[in-house]
């Protein structure tokens, strides 16, 4: 199963990739911004996308709206990892096409639960 991690912070990408590795997922590619994420999501088979919200140029929400409009990635499960945890933020993300939501800080167990829920859905 291939994961795409989209985050402008190299630290956050590394934290998420380390967490995925701990959960047994080793096939992970990464993108440093939303634009690169759009290219990588559409460029090859990706099973799950994990994205940040606050990114320069293309925000996480705009990134999700863009990939949802493309046939190849219209149904790829998307998990958003962010500090934006207000109810309105979550509603906006879900409306854009995000399937599930992880609020920072998080534990590996939280990430595991969210990924399992994403794949079960």
């Amino acid at each position: 199963m291939r994961f795409l991690v989209v985050d402008d912070s190299s630290t956050m990408r590394r934290i998420i990739i380390n967490t995925l590795n701990k959960l047994g997922h080793s096939d992970v590619i990464e993108a440093a911004n939303g634009r690169e994420g759009i290219d990588k999501a559409g460029g090859g088979p990706v099973d799950v996308i994990i994205t940040d919200w606050n990114m320069p140029e293309v925000s996480g929400v705009d990134f999700v709206r863009t990939i949802r409009a493309q046939e190849k990635t219209a149904k790829t499960p998307v998990l958003m990892v962010t500090t934006n945890a207000a109810k309105d933020d979550i509603v906006e993300a879900l409306r854009a096409g995000v399937n599930n939501y992880v609020v920072k800080p998080f534990t590996p167990d939280t990430m595991k639960e969210k990924i399992e829920a994403l794949l079960a859905g």
Partner: peptide, 17 residues
């Protein structure tokens, strides 16, 4: 520096929430 920035971002983000 990036790691400490991320920790601070998480503290402030959780506090803001």
């Amino acid at each position: 520096p990036d790691a400490i920035g991320e920790i601070s971002n998480m503290i402030a983000g959780a506090f803001r929430t």
